[in-house]
Design a protein around this nucleic acid. Structure first.
Lengths: 126, 126
DNA sequence: CGGCATCCCATCCGATACTG
DNA sequence: CAGTATCGGATGGGATGCCG
């Protein structure tokens, strides 16, 4: 239907061109922080400084950029409440929540295999 | 048993400190290319230039850095054959393959939801 | 073929100051 | 509280040349 590529075209994404779906998505989420932010938004909506304080080393400037990017892609919503001072809540959209669920697999893998990784590093360190 | 942290400790990784497992793993794989390289190594071992040509825009310098990092963490092996000129093959370790399997979820999510993302971008573009 | 070394520019990002 | 704006240093990574 419409302009959606056929199934045959959809499978032919090797070699990875710049506009293949995986690369588009990775270009958004594959950085030091975004996956962590999506994970934090999983439980419930959170406020800006709440997110910032939950990730050690994440600056206000970078968090802003991350949230704007996630908003652009329809993964989170931004809601400002007219309190004094202003209160802003960020929440996952259904799309964002489905991505968060997928990324939970990565977090679980990390926790299950961190020891093996650290041992490999120690073995090649000296 | 031994020095493995208890289940109670293992769950207390919020706020995310710099040495939490998820951050250690993300610091290794969360960039523009690494996930793609792991995916390419899934089918079978591949040679250096084979990998480089399979990802449009991936330079030799960066691919080298990525492969060294994956080697350090015990995710890929590097095997040099004494041919002329030299032939080098990279392959996933069992650990690397289990990570690749996990990351397949992200690739599938990307292909399933790319249209929604592109539409969200278009909606906020102008 | 599969790198490493060097140069050099683009971008990222932290620090700081200011605002609704 | 939740940002925006600006500046400057650190960093990333492309281009190039050379080598086993």
């Amino acid at each position: 239907m419409e302009t959606i590529p056929s199934a045959a075209e959809a499978k032919a994404w090797n070699p990875y061109s710049a506009d293949c779906p995986t690369r588009v998505v990775l270009d958004r989420i594959a950085d030091k922080w975004t996956v962590l932010v999506l994970g934090l938004l999983g439980d419930r909506p959170k406020r800006f400084n709440q997110l910032r304080k939950s990730v050690d080393g994440l600056s206000q400037k970078v968090l802003t950029q991350i949230l704007r990017g996630l908003e652009t892609d329809g993964l989170v919503t931004r809601t400002a409440f007219p309190t004094v001072p202003v209160t802003v809540e960020y929440a996952l959209t259904p799309l964002g929540d489905s991505l968060r669920t997928t990324l939970d697999g990565v977090r679980l893998w990390a926790e299950a295999n961190i020891e093996a990784i650290l041992q490999a590093r120690k073995a090649k360190g000296p």
